[in-house]
Computed example of a mutant assay.
Amino acid sequence: MVRVPTVLPPGLDPAGQAEQQRREIAVCRWVWDAGHPVVRPAPPERPVAGDLPPTFWERLTAVPDGTPDAGASGTTVARLHTALRPRPVELDRMHPLDDSVTAMLDALRHDTTHVSPTDRDRALRERATILPVLGDEAGCADRFPGTRPQPVHGDPPAYNVLRTPDGPYDADLEHLCVGPVEWDPTVAGPEVVTAYERAADCPVDAELPALCEAARLVQLVAWSAMVPQQPGLGDGMSPLLELWRASEPCGGALGRCSTWNHTAVVPRGTRQPCRAAARSTSAR
Rank of each mutant, 00 (worst) to 15 (best):
R3Q: 10
P5I: 15
V7A: 13
P10S: 04
Q17V: 14
A18E: 13
Q21H: 15
I25T: 06
C28S: 10
R29V: 11
A34C: 11
P37Y: 01
A42V: 11
P44C: 05
P44E: 11
E45G: 13
V48C: 02
D51Y: 09
D51V: 15
P54H: 11
F56I: 09
W57S: 08
T67D: 14
P68F: 03
A70K: 11
V77M: 04
L84S: 03
L84G: 05
P86A: 06
R87L: 10
D92T: 14
M94N: 00
D98K: 01
D98T: 06
D99N: 13
T102E: 12
T102S: 10
A123H: 05
P132A: 03
L134G: 00
D136R: 01
C140Y: 01
F144C: 08
P151K: 04
H153M: 08
P156Q: 15
N160V: 07
R163P: 02
P165W: 00
L173H: 08
L173P: 01
C177M: 09
P180S: 05
P180G: 02
V181L: 06
E182C: 08
V187G: 05
G189N: 06
E191C: 08
V193S: 11
Y196C: 08
Y196N: 07
E197W: 06
D201Q: 05
V204E: 03
P209G: 08
A215T: 13
L217T: 11
V218D: 03
V221I: 14
A222D: 03
A225E: 12
L233E: 03
G234H: 08
S238W: 13
P239L: 05
L240E: 10
L241E: 01
L243E: 13
R245I: 13
S247F: 10
E248Y: 09
G251D: 07
C257P: 09
S258R: 09
S258T: 15
G269H: 10
R271N: 00
P273K: 02
C274W: 01
A278R: 07
